[in-house]
Design a protein around this nucleic acid. Structure first.
Lengths: 210, 210
DNA sequence: TAGATTGTTAATCGATTAACAATC
DNA sequence: TAGATTGTTAATCGATTAACAATC
């Protein structure tokens, strides 16, 4: 159904999903591209173009059914599937990800964490066992993993990614503050926290003069 | 010096800074747009266009001095300034931000955290005191704050933002998974972790057929 | 039916890439 | 000087917006 979908559109999809969930929770059952656009600060035109990348979910003269459109976009995002997740690094970032309540709600199940620190190995974070980094290969042989979260220092991230690839993992959510080299058939999405904070800093520095 | 700079350019600046820092650490002193482009997966043309939004930092026939360009971009990003930061919410996300080592290196100093939970108030996270949420207004009267980090549940985020604005804070780094309404003279940069993970999920779901 | 709003094509706008003269 | 590479203008490409016929 969906032909080529540009990155610009893909990046907006989670926003649609989030707003539609909020609208649904608020008891709104129907919405036009006009109203949704006002809420999301997008033009009605853009919303209709975006949605129609995936099919005609609306009705002329009426708009969109909130829960129906939410459901559709959820499926497009793959949130109807279950994803098995492991987290590499049981520091504060790794632990925060392990504890993030939304993820399990959306079908992401963290089955293990890995760390090199002897005092962390053997403990649990949010009922998830922390295993020794050395056991990664064995774990990947025995368990299917859809997504690996990289939450370790930048210096170790590339090596960890290589080991994950060897072990068959093909999707990485990277929190390490560096850009990683990866094979074409591996998907890497970065969360560069520092980058985001620096963008805020830029906007503060150039507040008026732009 | 800098006229209008598009958001697309601004979003790439932290990446330049990061790569230049890595190059500097690796002992590279000079680089051409060609080489930097190969490293960052950008076209040389784009790199030269981006950099020339802020002035001619290169030399014909030679390229760019790594440390010089890094320094320039750091200044453009406002990393030569000191930013006083507070964190609202001392849960796992707030604590992870408080412990993130890079931030203090780049001039961001967290001076206080705030939480409603009685058992957290009075404790410290990475030597930063956790104060009661009720004391926010008083704190803002007594202390200048450049940036507030919102690391609390979505349901409380809008109210917190309003209180921050009242207290004179004009820049917010938002981790709450919701889009917030804010006055025009307030800068809000979002870190929507769920959105990022959903984009990864989308790419997994549409792996081949695109 | 009349009014509203979609789906979709066409027009515009902005960002990226190419090209090349300037110059180190 | 010759070679390399920038800074910058022009060309292209893609994304956003506008417009409108289709239709609920």
């Amino acid at each position: 159904m969906a032909g080529y979908v540009s990155d610009a559109v893909i990046r907006r999809l989670p926003g649609y999903y989030r707003h539609l969930r909020e609208l649904e929770a608020a008891g709104v059952t129907q919405i036009s591209s006009q109203e949704l656009g006002k809420r999301m600060q997008l033009t009605p035109s853009q919303i209709r173009q975006d949605i129609n990348c995936f099919g005609g979910f609306g009705r002329q003269g009426y708009g969109y059914k909130v829960s129906e459109l939410k459901e559709h976009i959820g499926e497009i995002l793959g949130l109807d599937r279950q994803h098995k997740v492991i987290i590499l690094g049981a520091g504060s970032i790794g632990s925060a990800v392990a504890r993030y309540p939304t993820f399990s709600r959306e079908g992401f199940e963290t089955i293990a964490m890995f760390d090199v620190a002897a005092d962390k190995v053997g403990s649990q974070v949010n009922e998830i066992p922390v295993l020794p980094m050395g056991g990664l290969e064995g774990f990947l042989t025995a368990n299917h993993v859809d997504i690996a979260v990289l939450a370790l220092p930048a210096a170790y991230a590339q090596d960890a990614l290589n080991r994950l690839y060897q072990g068959g993992v093909r999707a990485v959510w990277n929190f390490a503050p560096t850009d990683l080299n990866h094979p074409e058939d591996m998907i890497v999405v970065n969360v560069h926290l520092s980058d985001s904070l620096q963008i805020l800093s830029y906007k503060i520095a150039h507040r008026d003069n732009d």
